[in-house]
């Protein structure tokens, strides 16, 4: 028996909105530790890694490890039926081929449930080694989304370069070039507005705008985003989900041929 209750169903809806651009379907691995998902986009350039801890749920029970393959478009349809303030309870029997989502309104005056068919998906998991990153940038997630959106107008790639002076985002294309430089700023009153850089050595890497733009769909999940970079290693873009876990995106760099 699997049962997970989340008072803020909107958090799960935000997670779905953040990954549906990249993934059509995905397997949710449920265990006593929580719910995990790891899946690559169809071109194997980026990877989504979701970790929702069991103790972040308002109720969590998983008697037997369970992998639930879901079509994310269908899952999106189910969550479209929920109210913004609803509580969601996910339930599945052991070896079940369906999962049930029950939505309860805040006042408990409306309860709806939707049963969705599960899928058998070929799971491809990648082993991601622990990496000593050359630089770790933490910045407001809204600012990151804005910069990626703005620079995407100039070219298909964005160069992210980080030095002790700050971080620079650059793009160039037919119409010209764009550069955005951010210096470190410590705002002790509003931590979420700070830009912080933990630098071991300067690094500059090039990434496809299309994927960076998709990652920023996770902006509503977190005030801050963490970018971890290292030469010859994919970029890690991490959004902390308060009290529940994190959503990470991995993106292979572009390299000179």
């Amino acid at each position: 028996m699997f049962e997970a209750r989340l008072v803020n169903s909107s958090t799960f809806r935000k997670v779905l909105d953040a990954i549906k651009d990249l993934l059509n379907e995905a397997s949710f691995d449920c265990s006593e530790n929580g719910i995990q998902l790891q899946a690559m986009d169809s071109s194997h350039v980026s990877l989504v890694s979701l970790n929702l801890k069991s103790d972040g749920f308002d109720k969590f029970r998983c008697d037997r490890n369970l992998t639930m393959g879901m079509n994310l478009t269908s899952l999106g349809k189910v969550f479209k039926c929920s109210g913004a303030d609803d509580t969601v309870t996910m339930k599945a029997q052991d070896y079940a081929d369906t999962v049930t989502f029950m939505f309860e309104s805040k006042k408990q005056d409306k309860i709806s449930d939707y049963e969705m068919k599960l899928m058998n998906l070929d799971q491809e998991h990648l082993g991601i080694p622990d990496t000593e990153f050359s630089c770790i940038i933490k910045m407001p997630s809204i600012e990151f989304a804005r910069i990626i959106r703005d620079l995407s107008q100039f070219g298909e790639s964005i160069v992210i370069s980080c030095t002790k002076e700050g971080v620079k985002f650059s793009a160039q294309g037919d119409i010209g070039t764009g550069n955005v430089k951010l210096a470190q700023t410590h705002n002790f009153d509003k931590e979420e507005e700070s830009v912080t850089i933990d630098l071991q050595e300067p690094v500059a890497l090039t990434f496809a705008c299309q994927y960076l733009n998709s990652f920023t769909k996770a902006t509503p999940l977190s005030n801050q985003v963490k970018l971890s970079m290292c030469e010859n290693v994919p970029l890690v873009v991490e959004y902390q989900i308060p009290e529940l876990g994190h959503l990470r995106f991995y993106l292979a760099p572009k390299i000179e041929e």
Binding site: E124, L126, G127, A208, P234, A252, E256, E257
Partner: peptide
């Protein structure tokens, strides 16, 4: 021209 790397170039399949 930039060549797009794939994740398998960096990570192993489990």
């Amino acid at each position: 021209e930039n060549y797009q790397a794939r994740l398998e170039q960096y990570y192993t399949r489990l």
